[in-house]
Design a protein around this nucleic acid. Structure first.
Lengths: 223, 223
DNA sequence: GTCTATAACTGGATAGAC
DNA sequence: GTCTATCCAGTTATAGAC
C-alpha cells in the first residue's frame, strides 16, 4: 500500500533490501515475514521472492550488500594507517582505522546504515548465524587487522590478541544494537545513538585493553 | 520425543523451562515453536500453555528463573568485596565480583547455565527485548556495581563509567553467545567455551579499559 | 493434571493472468 | 516485470474428554 508515485519510481530491488534490512535488524530473521517486508518496501508480496529467491537468500543479500562497502573502507584505512607509520602503526591507530569507516559520511546520517549495524549486532551474537556469517563476510578483513596488531605488539601472544579483538567486537556490536538500555541505566547521561561519543570512549577503552597484554604473565587471582 | 520412564518422573515445569531455555537461546524467540519445546521437554503440546500461559510469558519465566539466582550471587560477591577492602575496593576486584558467579559450581558444568548465558546474549543485543528485559531483570544489581566503581574511581566522570560498563557488557555477552567465530578466526588458538580462559582475559582487558579513564581529558584524534 | 482434537490463523512460496 | 489468487504446511491456543 501507499507511496504510490515517489516510491515506485526508485529501484524496487533496493527498496526490498532496505525494508528487509530494517525489519531483520529490529525483529531477527524469524520475527519478520515476507509480507511485512513487501509492505514496508511498497512492493507486491511476490517480488522479494522474484528478485532474491527464498527468504534465506534475501537475508544473505542484505548482509552482503554493505559488508563489501565496509570491508573496502576498512582496508583502505588500514593501508593508509600502516603507510603513514613506516610499517609499525600504533594499536590506537589500528583501532581507529577499524572504527573510522563506521563514522564517515553517510554512515552516521543514513538510517540504512544504522539498521545494518543493528543487524550485525543480531548476527554476531547469534549462535545460529554468528559463526557462519561473520566468518564468511568479515573475517578475511579482520585477519588483516589482527596481523597489523601483531606487528604493533610483537611481544604479545597471538591468543591474547584474538581474545582482545573478541572483546572489542562484543563492545562494538552491543553499541550497534541500539537497545536503549545504556540510556536508561545511565539516567540519560549516555546516549547510545551518539556514535561519535560512543567511538571516542570505545577507542580509549579498547586501546587500553589491548595494551595491557604487553605486561607479560597472567596474574593469579588476588582477593 | 520419548524418554518415557525417567523423564516423566522429574518435574514437568522444570523440563519445560529447560527445553525452552535451550531452544530460545539457540534460535531466538520467534525461531522456536511450542511444539519444539514440548517435544524437547518430553511433554504434551498443551502443557507449556497450561503451566506458563502464552509463549511470551514462558519466555519471561525462563529469563527470570536464573536471573534471581545470578543477582543474589553477584550481590553477595560485591558485599564481600567491599567489606574486605574497608569500603574502597579496586576496580579489578569489583569486576571479579561481577564475573565470579558465572564461573562457580554448576555454572560451568551444567548445560542449563550455558544455555541461559547464550539466551542473555540474544536478549542483550536485541533492539526488541534488550531495553526492556535487561533493565528489568539485571539493572537494579548493575546499578550497585556502578556505585562501587564510582567509589573506586571517584575522579572519573559517571558518563565514562557507564560507557565502560557498556563495553564490558558487550564483551561478556558476545562471549556468552558461543558462536564459535573466535575459534575459527584464531585457528583454534582460542576456545570460546573455555570460560576460565575467557574470564581471565576479560578481567585484564576490561580492568585496563576502566582504569584508563582515570587519566583525564578526552584526546582529540591524532593521525 | 494430562492428552486429543481442532479451531482459527499466519507462514513461505508460486502458478498463471496480465 | 508485476500482481492476484491460492496452496498447504505449520502456528498458537484451547475446549472438552479422560
Amino acid at each position: 500500500m501507499s507511496l504510490p508515485q515517489e516510491e515506485s519510481r526508485i529501484d524496487r530491488r533496493t527498496a526490498i533490501l532496505d525494508a528487509a534490512e530494517e525489519q531483520f535488524a529490529a525483529y531477527g530473521y524469524d520475527g519478520v515475514t515476507l509480507r511485512a517486508i513487501a509492505k514496508k518496501a511498497g512492493v507486491d508480496l511476490a517480488l522479494p521472492n522474484y528478485y532474491f529467491g527464498p527468504k534465506r537468500d534475501l537475508f544473505d543479500a542484505v548482509l552482503m550488500r554493505r559488508a563489501e562497502i565496509l570491508n573496502a573502507a576498512r582496508l583502505a584505512q588500514l593501508d593508509e594507517c600502516i603507510a603513514s607509520s613506516n610499517g609499525t602503526p600504533s594499536v590506537e591507530n589500528i583501532i581507529r582505522a577499524f572504527l573510522r569507516p563506521l563514522l564517515t559520511g553517510e554512515h552516521v546520517s543514513e538510517q540504512g546504515w544504522k539498521n545494518y549495524y543493528a543487524l550485525i549486532a543480531y548476527v554476531n551474537n547469534s549462535p545460529e548465524w554468528g559463526g557462519r556469517l561473520m566468518t564468511q563476510f568479515f573475517d578475511p578483513v579482520i585477519q588483516k587487522f589482527i596481523d597489523a596488531l601483531r606487528l604493533a605488539m610483537p611481544e604479545v601472544e597471538a591468543r591474547d590478541i584474538y581474545w582482545a579483538y573478541h572483546f572489542l567486537s562484543g563492545a562494538l556490536t552491543l553499541t550497534f544494537a541500539q537497545t536503549g538500555r545504556l540510556d536508561t541505566l545511565s539516567g540519560g547521561l549516555c546516549r547510545s545513538d551518539d556514535l561519535t561519543d560512543a567511538f571516542e570512549h570505545m577507542v580509549r577503552f579498547t586501546t587500553a585493553g589491548f595494551e595491557t597484554f604487553r605486561s607479560g604473565q597472567k596474574k593469579r587471582r588476588p582477593r
